[in-house]
Simulated assay, not measured.
Amino acid sequence: MNLDFKIKNLLLICLIFLGVFNKYYSQTQDKDLFKTGADQPELYIPLLKGKTVGIVTNQTGLMKDRTHLVDYLVKNGIKIQSIFAPEHGFRGNADAGETVKNGVDAKTGIPIISLYGNNKKPKPEQLKGIDVVVFDIQDVGVRFYTYISTLTYLMEAGAENNVEIMVLDRPNPHDGYTDGPVLRKKWKSFVGMHEVPVVYGLTIGEYGKMVNGEKWLKNGVQAKYTLIPMQNYHKKQRYPMSDKPSPNLPNDKAINLYPSLCFFEGVQVSVGRGTDLPFQVYGSPWTKSLPYQFTPKPNYGAKDPFLNGKLCYGEDLSRYPEDLRELNLEWVIRAYESYKNPNQDFFLKNLWFDTLAGTDELRKQIIAHKPVSEIKSSWKKGLEDYEKIRVKYIVYKD
């Protein structure tokens, strides 16, 4: 009897020990797990309770269980006054450059206000009554991708109208390195608002900190800026995307190639819009010496693609094996050297190429047949000067 009692006590002690161990182990494991800002509601829900909220987001604003952030906030009693939609719209199905319309979210009934088209910066009347605007969008870490410009205008409007800006941070698929020409003020536009390189090596949350800290907003104003950082994020590691960030960046391959291939948007060459491989192929009717063939046609992500219906000759990069940690200029230079059209210059007349590059120097270097090594050497000082600014705003291990 006494022995049974001792055994029972021993078993009870073991069960208690196992329970404590499991709890400690799960907590330890949880600390080691990667989490986006959105997947840490314990950090931001208390800050939003009792406040009127606006939210800038799109189809990428998903939590780990695929719940959209808007739905989660509504479910948890957060009062959302307006959803602000960036380029490609709230549901992410608008073409690049297509005007995003105002509307109402069918699921929640919340008004949607476009921040793309004529209204890129929230107006005072659109922010009236709002205490804080939450920004949660998957960015790709490239200067001419417009979500950082939307964040800039949002911060500017927030500073001018005493509205707090809260960024829920997400991974940058081109983090941990910087490359490309640094933008010069003359070429400032919505696809390049600041003097940073093409690949700037910061998460969108870190980028917002830099814009605020360097007083790059209009008239040097500064926003009340709150960053909800990621947990266990490392800048040189690559993380899966919650959803495709835009219609023509459908997968990791396209995102990997995007910084290098986007320059084709400024020349007489298709970058695969209107095919099953956008930003994974390139070609033109006038580069017939190149081996791959495709014909752009209207599809979900491109209602009227460049070179629509024309047979193009180029390269298929969809099986390109490298995780690029630098810009590859070989493709655009190869296309330039292969281009034979007596009626049209390789570069578009509007010089959109210069706007994307942030300078006219790259175009002139390509025309002058400068080697890649010389072109990249010309970026060195600009990158070094930018790095002195960048390091001040790094939140995560580089």
Rank of each mutant, 00 (worst) to 15 (best):
M1K: 08
L3P: 05
D4Y: 00
D4T: 03
K6D: 06
K8A: 15
L11S: 11
I13L: 12
K23H: 15
Y24Q: 12
Y25A: 12
T28P: 03
A38N: 03
L47W: 02
L47D: 02
K49M: 15
V53T: 14
Q59I: 14
M63R: 03
M63G: 03
R66G: 05
K79R: 15
S82G: 08
F84H: 07
F90D: 01
N93P: 03
N93S: 14
A94P: 01
D95H: 11
A96W: 02
A96L: 03
N102W: 10
D105G: 07
T108W: 01
P111R: 02
L115N: 01
N119F: 05
K123G: 14
L127W: 08
G129P: 00
Q138K: 13
V142Y: 06
V142I: 15
V142N: 02
F144Q: 04
Y147F: 15
S149G: 09
L154G: 12
L154A: 10
A159N: 05
N161A: 13
N162F: 04
N162C: 12
M166D: 09
W187E: 10
F190C: 06
V196F: 02
V196L: 01
L202S: 05
G205D: 02
K209T: 13
G213C: 12
K224C: 15
I228N: 00
P229Q: 11
Q231I: 08
Y233S: 10
H234E: 12
P240S: 14
P240R: 13
D243L: 09
S246A: 13
L257C: 06
F263K: 00
G266Y: 02
V271S: 07
D276P: 07
F279L: 10
V281S: 06
Y282M: 04
Y282D: 02
T287N: 12
K288L: 09
T295L: 04
N299D: 07
N299F: 04
Y300P: 00
Y300C: 08
A302R: 07
P305S: 11
L311Y: 00
D323Q: 15
L324C: 04
L324Y: 00
E326P: 03
V332A: 11
P342W: 08
F346W: 05
D354Q: 08
D354Y: 01
D354E: 12
T355I: 06
G358D: 01
I366Y: 00
A368Y: 06
E384Q: 14
D385M: 13
K388D: 14
V391L: 03
